[in-house]
């Protein structure tokens, strides 16, 4: 079918206007996910001086991978959700975020996607997050990938360093976002060694791994001979690991090594996610 366009300029204007209005409505939604390349190499995982499940400190080798610079936003998730709505069948599970009408700063979905496009999407289960990642041709980071992206090579306690500074949205009352979420990237001083934002606070982030309190010990056993290669966590479990702490947590729970867990089908206002992707190896 041919579509005639009497006036090319006016057509162009209409298209531009449409694009513009979409951009205005959903902020960064039209942009591709911003990824950071984390080069291949060995890093130190865990801590000897903190909680029992973070022990011991051990070396882990990871191939190069990409990690989302920001947590996935409402606007980004909205595109995925919208597509599912239009393809709705009983056979396909619908990945709709939980509504938080009792939290005025978050509110109902999808209204919140329009009102707060640059806020991290919350109220998503692990399954929702994994489905979104697959839709984007990516995946959730493993626990090891998450930790390396957060602490870098210098074993930082928090993504920005070793000092307890208000560079993250936590439960503390001095970060400018008391009892509420913050738009992604609101704490530029809190960026990690690699430049990833909000790896401490704002929202916990789902990782791909099951939780086990002795997982780090296992990793370290393998690392005794040579660093564990690209670990993917325990083979079974009840809980998925979440990392980074959130707006409801004390800063001590937002450290780069603090590990926590949640049932994968729970949807809460304090857990979101970021994406990861394996980097293709350069051909020789």
């Amino acid at each position: 079918m041919n579509i005639s366009c009497p006036n090319r300029n006016s057509c162009f204007s209409i298209v531009c206007l449409l694009l513009f209005s979409v951009c205005i409505r959903f902020g960064v939604s039209a942009q591709e996910t911003e990824l950071i390349l984390i080069s291949a190499g060995t890093f130190t995982m865990g801590s000897d001086s903190r909680a029992a499940d973070e022990r011991p400190m051990h070396k882990v080798y990871l191939d190069a991978y990409y990690i989302g610079k920001y947590e996935v936003t409402n606007a980004e998730y909205y595109e995925f959700w919208k597509l599912q709505e239009s393809n709705s069948t009983d056979m396909v599970p619908q990945h709709t975020p939980e509504n938080f009408s009792h939290l005025p700063h978050i509110g109902d979905w999808p209204t919140r996607a329009e009102q707060f496009p640059n806020y991290p999407v919350v109220g998503v289960s692990w399954h929702d997050a994994a489905a979104y990642a697959a839709w984007k041709g990516m995946r959730l980071p493993t626990e090891a990938e998450w930790e390396k992206a957060a602490r870098g090579y210098t074993n930082r306690i928090w993504p920005w360093g070793g000092a307890m500074e208000p560079h993250a949205n936590t439960a503390a009352m001095d970060d400018g976002y008391e009892n509420r979420l913050a738009p992604v990237g609101s704490f530029p001083k809190g960026k990690s060694y690699y430049g990833a934002m909000d790896m401490a606070g704002n929202v916990w982030e789902w990782t791909a791994d099951w939780y086990s309190d002795v997982y780090y010990w296992y990793s370290s056993q393998a690392a005794a001979k040579r660093p564990k290669q690209n670990p993917t966590g325990p083979t079974a479990g009840s809980w998925r690991v979440i990392r980074g702490g959130s707006w409801i947590d004390a800063i001590t729970r937002c450290s780069t090594t603090f590990r926590f867990y949640l049932y994968p089908n729970l949807k809460t206002s304090f857990v979101g996610f970021r994406l990861a992707k394996t980097a293709e190896k350069a051909s020789k």
């Binding site: 939980e98 009408s101 009792h102 409801i248 809460t268």
Partner: peptide, 20 residues
């Protein structure tokens, strides 16, 4: 229905915060 579920969510959320 959604009203009830909304209250359920509200209680669960508060429960988590208090537990933490």
């Amino acid at each position: 229905k959604p009203g009830d579920h909304s209250r359920y969510v509200q209680h669960v959320e508060r429960g988590f915060v208090l537990m933490f």
